[in-house]
Structure formats: C-alpha cells, structure tokens
C-alpha cells in the first residue's frame, strides 16, 4: 500500500470498479477496490464468521442430552459443520489482508459483533429443532443471496456453506415434526420453542430497509443483492406453510395472508428487544463470550504443543 496515486487516478479506478460491479463481474482479492468496500467486507465477513463460531454454543449445550444416538450423531455433525463454516469465512476474510488471529481476538475481547440470535438460551430439546428449522432456515435465505456477492472469496464460501446448511434445516424440521405428532407434552414443547424463536428469527434479517444504515452501500456494491425486508418476507412465506404442515402456530395474532401480493404479513417486530440484545443485554451475551474465552484458554496447550512439536522437528 505504498501507492501515492493522485485523486484523479483514484476516481478513474473507482469508475472502473463500479463498472465492473455493474457488469456483475467478480472482484478478487488482488483487484483494486475502494478502501470502503474492503472495510465493509471485512466487517461483514468477520461478523458472519464469528456468528458461525458462537452459533456452536447454544446447540453444543444439547449434545450430551440428545434423546437418541441418531440425534446425537446428527447434532455433533451439525456443530462440526458450523466450525467449518466459520473457518471458510475467516479464510475468505484473510484474503482482504487481515489476520484471523486479530479477528478472533476482537471476538474474545468483546469488541466484535455476531448474530444476536445466538444470545438466546436453548432451554429444551425442541429448541434444537427450532434452531435448525428457523435459524438455519433464515441463514439459508440470507446466504443463498450472498452466494452471488460481488466479492469472489465470500461468494464461493457461501456456495459451499449453502450446500451443507440444507441438512441443518431439514434435521431441525424433522425434530419439530416428530415432537409435533408426539405426546401432548412433546407437542407443547415444540410449540413453546416456536413461540420463543419465531420473532428473534425474523430479527436475524436486520432492521427494516428504511432503518438499515449499511444496506444501501452493500447493495450498491453488489455485496447484498436483496434488502432485509425482501429476504425476511421470503423466509416468512416459506416458513408459515411449513408450520401449518406440522400443525404448529406462529405466535403472531396479526399474521394475515395478502391475496393480492401472495405474502404472509406479520405484525410489528419488537425492535427495542432487537437493539437491547445487539447492544449486549440479551439473555446469554455474557455466557456466550465466557464460554468462548474458556474454550480458547482450554485449547491453548494444544496449540502450544503443536508449535513446540514443529520447532523441535524443524
């Protein structure tokens, strides 16, 4: 970064860059890009990677208590996938000239954001079903869109992730469907999980378009291809039908079908709750970070041993 380019050179490069975006070309790490594009990508991709990593915690909570061996194997595989997804995205972020260790350190220091959905507790086994069905379902809607992002490494990581997420969603829905046709208590457990995870899932898509500070820029640069509200609507339309199929009801008295648009319209989302959790005051924010820090500290000797081994054999 020792270039001392003049302002006019920069503006012509910016024009070229914007023309490439307009032509749907893929931007690769060594291509010239505006500093702001790089910064926004690093911010967004790091948050995404952190979300995959923190996302292991609510589900990890149930691995030892999964009701059958089949469910336990599935959950282990899913949680391992989430670790892999974190690594794909960290690896993509590193192509922008940042070090993964700095990103991880920011997370451990409590300076980095991750998806607020993971600050809610997993109180019952049905929550594992609700997470797979709703949280991974929402993530697929978002990530399918990001698989067409203008930055090549991000888009390629998303293609890989989307292929794997489909199993995550289906295993979650299978858990919910099984509970929903079980005993009265199992049905009630499934409904309770849906009641608690429904609204936070809708919040995963972020603020309404009119209140979203980053959306315009991300869409202008082809990082995002659809707005928060468009993606949320797609998720709602898909999910209502799936809930009906297993006789569960989303906790929204205002929900109605619009014959004209073919959309399911939800009641108002509680954005005060959303901002409360984003700002660190959700039910589990502290617990999640403490668990990450403990895992990092507990794993330190393994990393030290690997380094010592290679030094000895160098």
């Amino acid at each position: 970064m020792t270039t001392t380019s003049t302002a006019s050179e920069d503006s012509s490069r910016l024009a070229q860059f914007e023309a490439r975006i307009a032509a749907d070309e893929s931007i690769e790490p060594k291509d010239w890009m505006p500093e702001r594009y790089r910064k926004q990508l690093i911010r967004m991709m790091a948050q995404h990677a952190h979300s995959e990593v923190v996302g292991m915690l609510p589900e990890g909570n149930w691995i030892t208590r999964a009701p059958t061996l089949r469910r336990k194997m599935v959950l282990l595989a899913k949680v391992q996938d989430e670790a892999g997804h974190g690594l794909y995205i960290y690896c993509g972020t590193e192509t922008l000239g940042v070090d993964r260790h700095d990103l991880v350190q920011e997370l451990l220091d409590g300076k980095a954001k991750y998806s607020s959905i993971f600050n809610y507790p997993t109180l019952t086994w049905a929550d594992i079903g609700a997470i797979g069905w709703l949280v991974d379902g929402a993530a697929i809607v978002n990530q399918t869109m990001l698989a067409k992002a203008s930055f090549g490494p991000y888009a390629r990581a998303m293609v890989r992730i989307c292929k794997e997420e489909n199993f995550h969603k289906r295993q979650g829905y299978e858990i919910m469907a099984t509970l929903a046709r079980g005993t009265g208590a199992q049905r009630a457990m499934a409904q309770d999980a849906l009641n608690r995870w429904w609204w936070p899932s809708l919040m995963m898509f972020g603020p309404h378009d009119k209140d979203s500070t980053n959306s315009d820029e991300l869409m202008r640069w082809g990082i995002k291809r659809k707005s928060n509200d468009e993606l949320r609507q797609r998720f709602v339309n898909m999910t209502i039908v799936q809930a009906q199929a297993i006789d569960l009801t989303v906790p929204d008295a205002d929900l109605k079908y619009n014959e004209m648009t073919g959309d399911w319209e939800t009641g108002p989302i509680d954005w005060d709750e959303f901002w409360r959790v984003v700002k660190g005051n959700g039910p589990c924010n502290k617990e999640r970070l403490d668990a990450r820090r403990k895992a990092d500290a507990d794993g330190a000797w393994v990393r030290a041993a690997a380094s010592a081994y290679v030094e000895k054999h160098a």
């Binding site: 260790h101 991880v104 380094s307």
Partner: peptide, 9 residues
C-alpha cells in the same frame, strides 16, 4: 488471553 507469538506465526 492473548495468543502466543508462536501461534500467530
């Protein structure tokens, strides 16, 4: 809880 230099490298 900072990472060791060896790890970073």
């Amino acid at each position: 809880m900072t990472q060791s230099p060896a790890e970073r490298s």
